[in-house]
Simulated scan of single mutants.
Amino acid sequence: MVIVKPNLTPLLKDMGLTQMDLSDKSGVPQGTISRFDKNSRHEANHLFSIAKALGVTIEELFIVEHEE
């Protein structure tokens, strides 16, 4: 089984960015960014916009754990 957990908050902290900074860079509303780590579903266009603005891959926006 694969468990996928959002990893946006730690990425922003490591990069010294706020949610508003990311909103400005990505064009994704700050409210959407605020809910990112709480949601189990994400809009594809938001994923691509956020990843591009941060200079990371979409995979890096998440923590993937494998359970047997």
Rank of each mutant, 00 (worst) to 15 (best):
26 S>D: 04
27 G>V: 05
21 D>Q: 03
68 E>P: 15
14 D>K: 15
14 D>P: 00
49 S>C: 04
1 M>V: 13
21 D>L: 01
35 R>K: 13
11 L>M: 06
62 F>P: 01
58 I>G: 03
42 H>N: 08
29 P>T: 06
10 P>V: 14
35 R>H: 11
2 V>W: 07
48 F>R: 15
50 I>R: 02
30 Q>G: 03
62 F>L: 06
52 K>H: 11
38 K>Q: 11
66 H>E: 15
40 S>G: 05
18 T>M: 03
42 H>A: 11
45 N>W: 08
60 E>F: 03
13 K>H: 10
2 V>I: 15
29 P>E: 06
4 V>T: 13
52 K>N: 14
12 L>W: 01
64 V>E: 09
11 L>P: 01
46 H>C: 07
11 L>W: 03
18 T>P: 06
7 N>M: 11
52 K>T: 14
47 L>T: 04
20 M>K: 14
2 V>M: 11
65 E>Q: 14
21 D>I: 07
32 T>G: 02
1 M>D: 10
16 G>H: 07
10 P>R: 01
2 V>T: 13
8 L>H: 00
42 H>E: 09
65 E>Y: 09
28 V>K: 02
57 T>Y: 00
65 E>P: 07
12 L>E: 05
40 S>R: 09
16 G>L: 10
64 V>L: 08
33 I>E: 00
18 T>Q: 06
42 H>W: 10
45 N>E: 13
24 D>L: 13
30 Q>V: 15
54 L>D: 10
29 P>R: 03
50 I>H: 02
28 V>M: 00
65 E>C: 07
25 K>M: 15
32 T>L: 03
9 T>Q: 08
42 H>F: 08
43 E>M: 10
66 H>N: 12
28 V>N: 04
57 T>P: 00
13 K>Y: 08
28 V>R: 01
32 T>R: 04
14 D>N: 11
61 L>F: 07
32 T>I: 10
56 V>H: 02
5 K>Y: 09
13 K>G: 07
63 I>D: 12
54 L>V: 12
67 E>K: 14
55 G>E: 05
29 P>M: 04
58 I>D: 05
7 N>V: 06
29 P>L: 08
27 G>M: 02
49 S>A: 15
45 N>K: 13
3 I>G: 01
68 E>I: 13
25 K>Q: 14
65 E>S: 14
46 H>T: 03
55 G>A: 07
56 V>N: 02
34 S>P: 02
49 S>R: 10
17 L>E: 05
34 S>L: 05
46 H>K: 04
30 Q>N: 13
67 E>V: 15
56 V>A: 02
47 L>Y: 02
50 I>K: 01
9 T>S: 13
65 E>T: 13
26 S>E: 05
19 Q>R: 14
17 L>Q: 06
33 I>P: 00
34 S>M: 05
63 I>C: 11
11 L>Y: 03
21 D>Y: 00
60 E>M: 08
52 K>V: 10
7 N>Y: 11
40 S>A: 10
25 K>H: 07
48 F>W: 09
2 V>R: 14
32 T>Q: 04
52 K>R: 14
60 E>C: 05
60 E>S: 11
39 N>E: 12
8 L>Q: 00
2 V>K: 15
66 H>C: 12
